[in-house]
């Protein structure tokens, strides 16, 4: 009896482990920054480099900080949805222009539209390292106190929005009341 059930059980276990493995995405590394205050930064604004944008400017409301660059193809794919989020008024959308050239970035915005309240320019990617960015696009949801509550690596999709981001925003708004 055991002669058959034991190997079968072993096989079943293997299938189970592999099935769990299939649901995991190895390229998605969980961020240790979730639940922690966003790193302080002070960077020139894209449209007006004489003015700075800092973390303090983002505090007070729920914000989506979107890391993008004109050289980034996936950002182009993501752009319409970011615009949609911004237009819906669900969150204040800010941009972090990552290792880009100012002229190219402005051209990109002119061609595709500018959904951002303000854009900080991270020319050398130093602030991005503090945020644990490892490629564009990436998006961070910050609560009213500037605490990172959510991070998405890669383009944010309608599904991410519906399943993760939107419920989180609702929670934050409920907590505030």
């Amino acid at each position: 009896m055991w002669r058959f059930t034991l190997p079968l059980m072993g096989f079943g276990l293997l299938v189970l482990i592999l099935a769990i493995g299939l649901t995991q995405d190895p390229s998605e590394v969980p961020s240790p920054l979730i639940g922690k205050p966003a790193p302080e930064f002070e960077l020139p604004r894209l449209h007006d480099p004489s003015q700075n944008l800092s973390l303090a400017d983002l505090k007070g409301e729920i914000t989506l900080l979107n890391v993008w660059a004109s050289w980034c193809e996936s950002c182009r794919v993501e752009h319409p949805f970011i615009s949609e989020i911004a237009a819906s008024g669900a969150v204040a959308v800010y941009g972090l222009n990552y290792k880009d050239e100012r002229g190219e970035a402005l051209k990109w915005l002119k061609a595709l539209g500018d959904p951002y309240q303000a854009i900080a320019v991270d020319q050398d990617g130093r602030v991005a390292i503090d945020f644990g960015v490892y490629g564009a696009p990436e998006s961070y949801l910050l609560d009213q106190n500037g605490v990172i509550v959510y991070k998405k690596i890669g383009p944010i999709t309608a599904r991410d929005w519906k399943e993760d981001v939107s419920p989180l925003i609702q929670q934050l708004r409920d907590k505030q009341l």
């Binding site: 590394v29 969980p30 961020s31 240790p32 920054l33 390292i129 503090d130 945020f131 644990g132 490892y134």
Partner: peptide, 8 residues
């Protein structure tokens, strides 16, 4: 690095 990117 671990603070920013995790144990990974």
């Amino acid at each position: 690095l671990v603070d920013r990117y995790g144990d990974f």
